[in-house]
Design a protein around this nucleic acid. Structure first.
Lengths: 327, 327
DNA sequence: TAGGCTTTGGTAAACGTTTTCCCAATTCGT
DNA sequence: ACGAATTGGGAAAACGTTTACCAAAGCCTA
């Protein structure tokens, strides 16, 4: 390449990076040679020399679930706008897969991590990252022991609000369906429980062993709604669970919201389009992604900076899956 | 690192790569030193020297849509099992973003591409990849001009089958809703049209300008169903469109399937959980991802190999959103 | 006009590996 | 017991950049 333009490699580098003046003559020689050869600088070599790759590892529990794919999308897009590449990895909440990815990304010399950890097994991985002094921002989780940047949402308040909404509608027997606690912040559940006990309302909590897909929500709801003395309202602690609940209700010929009120959590785009449109506690998905990237850029610019935490608020979005209690 | 084990760097390399015998003594010295230092080989330097990165660029149109996120998941998982990293990129069908990603991945020296191109603007990008001699496998698209490996599905047959199903149920006025043709294979539409004309059935085709999200499907369906002489059945050429159609039907107080039959396309996991469960033409999503990776590995192992094409079949899955025509 | 500053270009070291080449030591065959 | 073959190890080149340093030339100022 340098040969093609009959110029030194240093000059080529300078033209590309524009970090020193190069005479118009040489510059145009280089530019046209680049064009002729379809030259692309080798980022591998750049990374080696600069020891920075402008890539960040993005670890997401289950990329195929709507909430996570939307979040991944938001992160990736924001990163891209700042000229960083996001390496999306789906950890499926398997600690060993999570570990394999962390290894891989570390080996790959990513500049930073955005990490949506599962509860079990993530702490050790996280420690390995921070020990290397690589910036991380955690999403929706914190580990008491380690001081790292975080984007949190008001899970407790959200749980409280969702339950409160059902209580205000006069429901006195409320079911709560919740994913495996390893894959969902407990605060969300505690918030709901607090509202429920404050109001002295009958609560029936079901914690699923599996993840929060449609199927799991469906099965849990089926079981809950078929027992005698079924609840008149269900608070599903994730929208995909709520979709399963709606399905179960339809299967059992229960009308929503007349016979059963349903509240979800997340506000994935699907929530507005199921039938009936789902009342849900909205997470600001795009804002979460943007905040995570923003914090990360701070840390990257100023490696000495103290960890930052930003807290974003959930908001109850009332649609048509909830109604006053008929009984 | 070599110093820590009191051994030459060549020996370290040999222990790690196991490409030559190293005496047990030295090997264990190296291994324990690696352990003490928490050493990770620098993939950047490896890539530079080996000019192979064991990473493949995965270009997906809209990662936040269920079909694509599931496909991405399948690809990533299969790649991972073969010890390759997938770099997921969401091109959003914007030619300039697509180009930016191709540039970036080329610069990043990925070993190969899995490319789900949009129609417009992808051909030039594809050409830049193949000119460099980098293996690519295209998903669900082919460009006559360029000879590259492909995973195709029987879109024509699928379109035909979906329409045929409605015809067999006695529908004589059928609406077809289809995403922008830049983001959907025409064959799917042609297949449907062929079945329709063969049967001499009234068809009303609506091609949306926007992508295939719930919202777009909803709006198109609303418009189609509000006109006088509305169809008794709708064939939505993507499940997310179908979800929008179901929503529109509910909004207009049309019962599905009594007043309106709906057929989708894709068989995303949601399809079984909407109400009513959606009859749809299933794509073998996981098989597509696996086939793409399999072909890619062939190409990678044997760079001279001729491009391969595999064709996978769609299959009609009958659920409860379709019924005999009542009129 | 000589000495110093500025500008512009080139040279070479460095990044952390892999790989090639070569040497020494050991084993083997005769 | 001697040469050949095999084995285990190190030294150094190579990968494609960036960057510190150097040299030459032009320009200013005293």
């Amino acid at each position: 390449m340098a040969a093609e333009a009959q110029v030194s490699i240093a000059t080529v580098s300078r033209v590309i990076n524009g970090n020193r003046r190069v005479s118009p003559d040489l510059r145009s020689r280089v530019l046209s040679a680049m064009d002729r050869l379809g030259y692309q600088p080798n980022a591998i070599a750049q990374g080696l020399r600069r020891s920075a790759t402008r890539s960040v590892g993005v670890l997401i529990p289950r990329i195929h679930e709507p909430f996570f794919s939307t979040l991944a999308f938001a992160i990736e897009r924001t990163l891209f706008a700042s000229d960083y590449r996001g390496l999306l990895c789906s950890t499926e909440e398997q600690p060993d897969k999570e570990r394999a990815y962390v290894d891989m990304l570390l080996t790959q010399q990513v500049d930073a991590f955005i990490y949506f950890p599962s509860i079990a097994g993530s702490q050790a991985n996280l420690r390995r990252i921070v020990e290397r002094g690589i910036p991380v921002v955690l999403i929706e989780r914190s580990f008491a022991e380690l001081e790292v940047s975080r984007v949190l949402i008001s899970n407790f308040q959200g749980g409280y609000d969702g339950a409160q909404h059902l209580i205000a509608l006069g429901h006195t027997h409320i079911g709560v369906i919740c994913a495996n606690l390893a894959s969902m912040p407990v605060e969300r559940l505690s918030g709901a429980q607090q509202a429920l006990t404050e109001a002295g309302v009958d609560a029936e909590v079901r914690i699923m062993s599996r993840g929060s897909d449609f199927e799991a929500g469906y099965e849990a709801a089926l079981d809950m709604l078929q027992r005698p003395g079924r609840p008149t309202a269900v608070f599903a602690l994730a929208d995909s669970i709520a979709v399963g609940v709606l399905h179960a209700a339809a299967y059992l010929d229960l009308r929503v919201p007349e016979d059963l009120s349903v509240v979800g959590f997340d506000n994935i785009s699907l929530a507005a389009f199921v039938i009936p449109p789902l009342t849900t506690v909205a997470q600001p998905i795009y804002a979460i992604g943007e905040a995570a990237v923003r914090i990360l850029l701070h840390q990257l610019q100023d490696p000495g900076a103290a960890p930052e935490t930003v807290m974003l608020n959930t908001e109850l979005v009332v649609r048509q899956s909830t109604a006053p209690c008929a009984r």
